[in-house]
Every structure is written in structure tokens, then in C-alpha cells.
Design a protein around this nucleic acid. Structure first.
Lengths: 153, 153
DNA sequence: GGGATTCGCAACTATCCTGGTTACAGATAA
DNA sequence: TTATCTGTAACCAGGATAGTTGCGAATCCC
């Protein structure tokens, strides 16, 4: 699986940290250690899902659109992950003249669906507030990457 | 995710159906609707995991190495899936000078681990016997693709 | 022994996804 | 007006996947 969920949670954790002001993709990219455009792609997905608001122009950037306690990791997962399905079926449809080939996919969909639902249930009960608390607990007093950049400007 | 798990379960379902005789990659490939070498790659992984036995040479093929009731989908999943991790972390390690960057991965590993464990728990309680029963229930009386090939030879 | 069948594996291809990058138009604050 | 920031398109490199070909080795049957 892609690292988009990890980056998205990272982004939202930064926005939870600095709720008072919009944070630019430049600043976020420094913390994530990637290119600003990569961040903007993720932020764009989160915006379309209604999790963040984005303000263009000078002194613009992203900020949370909702209380972190109301943002679940399942929403984040669904916002940035392209495919809804955790498991893939056959690349080519199996032989329908065969007893197994004609029916295996229906059985697989059943099991795969249960497995995915179990996974999603875990993500659904973890909020960005939980993540933020977990990160904060590990964190000493330390500044954000680029936090001083805005101050300098 | 790749379709290897789906194909592997399909293969094992066929082997469960025809437990009395080895089934060739050719015959399996016909039911799966793919190339025999693709089947042999999957079967090779199942063999290395001890789920099937393979007999080379004429009239050779694969057969179950264990009772289908003793083969869980979790074993199948682990046999054929290359990565053990369902979720990926950052492509590049995040900025360690940043409070979030330095600690987010530890928090992510925790949540992602729980989610994956929940998914695997579902796979662990489904056996190939269950899958076979499910397929059989959907199946009328129908022959396997290529079942008559061996008979003709 | 000889021929036919089958596996295992290496190698190659086409395709897709991902992350990273550059470039540029549009929006906005100072 | 100028500097800053977003959004998006376009492109590239790398890796994964499915499919394919070819060949050596093992095995069965005559």
C-alpha cells in the first residue's frame, strides 16, 4: 500500500498542533521530508473530503476544518486511498465453465469484505485527537520544522 | 494489493476439490484463466510454506499437503504476499528535528499494527474447508476446467 | 532407453502505481 | 504592485505485477 495515509495523518497532526494559523505546503513538506507538491496532492484530497480548509495566496495554507476529535483515521484512509478494496480479485475473470472458477469470487468477496471491515473498524475508532495525544506524549518541548519561517516573514 | 491471495485461494480450492490426484499447473491455469507459469509461481510459494506438495514429471502436479480444515487464509495470505505490512510509512524518514516528524511514525506503527491484526484475525479463523464449503454451496453439479484432459491422456 | 509430460527458474516485456520534480496560471495579503 | 501560496498538468524514475518464452531437470509410460 502507498504511504499516502501515513503522510495524511502526519499532515493532520501538524494542523492539529498549529490550529491557530494556516500552514503552508512548504512548511509541511519540510516536516514530512518531501516535495511541497506531494503535500498539496494529499491536502487536496483531504480538502475534497471536507477535513481541511485551504486558503490560497500569501500567508495562506491549510487548516483543520473540524475538531480533531471528530476526524477518524477511517475518514483519512478513505480520503486519500484510491481503491476502496483492500484485496484484489483475479486480474482476469476466472473460467466460468468451471465449478470453482464460476463461484470462487463470490466466496472471496465475502471473506475479504469481512477482513476489510475489521480493519476499518479499528481505524474508525481512532481520531486525530488520539493520534495527536500519542505524538505529544512522545514529544518533548520542540519546535515544528519551519515554525520560525512564518515568524521571520 | 495484488491478486495473488485470490489466485492462491482459488488454487487451493481446486486442490481441495480434487484431493485424490495431483493437478497440473496447466489445468489450474485454465480455471484461473491465466498463464501456467503464473500458477507455478503461486504454487511455489504455497509449497515453500508447506501448504501443498508438488510432484514433477509426467502425471505430476500439485496436491494439498494438509487437511483443508487446517489451512487458514492467514497462512495463505502470508505465503504469497511479499510484504508483511498492510500500511506503508513515509517513503523518506520524516524530519527528526520536528516534534511531529520525530514521533509520528511510532504512533502510526501502533495504530496500523492494530488495524492489521484485526484484519488478520478474520483471515485466521477462515479455513480452506470453509471456503470450499462456500464455493460448493454455490456450485451446481459441474466439472472442473480440464478435468477431462487428464482422463483423455 | 526414448519420448512425452511436467515442474522450476531465469529472463524479458508491457502496464500500472507511486513519489518526486518542474512549470505555470490564478488567488491573496501586505 | 509584488511576493507568496495554491492547484494542476506534465513528465520522469523506480518498483511491482501479470503475462510470456525458453530451457534444464525430473518423472512416467511404452
Amino acid at each position: 500500500m502507498s504511504s499516502r495515509v501515513a503522510v495524511a495523518v502526519h499532515v493532520l497532526a501538524i494542523l492539529t498542533w498549529r490550529r491557530s494559523e494556516p500552514v503552508s505546503s512548504q512548511q509541511i513538506a519540510r516536516s514530512v521530508n518531501t516535495h511541497p507538491v506531494v503535500v498539496r496532492r494529499i491536502v487536496g484530497a483531504l480538502r475534497r473530503a471536507g477535513l481541511v480548509e485551504v486558503q490560497p495566496g500569501a500567508a495562506g495554507g491549510a487548516r483543520l476544518a473540524r475538531d480533531p476529535a471528530e476526524i477518524t483515521l477511517l475518514e483519512v484512509y478513505r480520503s486519500v486511498e484510491s481503491s476502496d478494496d483492500l484485496f484484489a480479485l483475479h486480474a482476469q475473470p476466472p473460467c466460468q465453465d468451471c465449478g470453482v472458477g464460476a463461484n470462487i469470487q463470490a466466496s472471496l468477496v465475502e471473506v475479504f469484505g469481512e477482513a476489510q471491515a475489521a480493519m476499518e473498524a479499528v481505524l474508525a475508532r481512532v481520531t486525530m485527537q488520539d493520534v495527536w495525544r500519542s505524538v505529544f506524549a512522545r514529544m518533548g518541548h520542540r519546535g515544528a520544522c519551519g515554525a520560525e519561517v512564518r515568524r521571520r516573514a
